[in-house]
Design a protein around this nucleic acid. Structure first.
Length: 126
DNA sequence: CCATTGACCGGCT
DNA sequence: TAGCCGGCCAATG
């Protein structure tokens, strides 16, 4: 697998890890934040390639409409619905109310990652 | 190379 | 609200 492809996957997975418990995000939203405009489909692809043992809260990623991305009768759908319900995200008629549960990272959350360092002028140091 | 395939999206009826 | 449709774009064959 090409290096840039692997890097993109990591970037997507890391972004999804930032979604707090009890909140959700759309595929397109994750793509945007990960720096991949119009990359919604790539996010879906990336989620299908999460290696065993990796901690990625895949269940918090939904379609922009709030619909879960799986067939209603599938085991995966049921599993996702259960995981969401478990953290108090209401799933009804196969979808979630995005108005109510969508993750909206504020500026601090985007700029002040633990690994970043800044000076008084707001210049990035590391 | 060209065609097909998706865990998608947004506009429009 | 529900579909339909064209657009999207990397991976696959």
């Amino acid at each position: 697998m090409p290096a840039d492809t692997a890097r993109r996957l990591e970037q997507i997975w890391n972004t999804i890890r930032d979604i707090p418990e009890g909140r959700v995000a759309s595929y397109g939203q994750i793509a945007e934040i990960a720096g991949i405009p119009r990359g919604a489909r790539q996010v879906g692809r990336a989620l299908g390639q999460v290696p065993d043992g990796y901690e990625v809260p895949w269940h918090r990623v939904l379609r922009s409409s709030g619909q879960l991305a799986f067939d209603r009768n599938s085991a995966t759908f049921k599993k996702q619905a259960r995981l969401l319900t478990r953290e108090n995200v209401r799933v009804r008629n196969g979808k979630v109310d995005m108005k109510k549960y969508r993750w909206t990272p504020d500026l601090d959350e985007l700029l002040w990652k633990p690994t970043d360092a800044w000076d008084d002028e707001g210049e990035r140091l590391s």
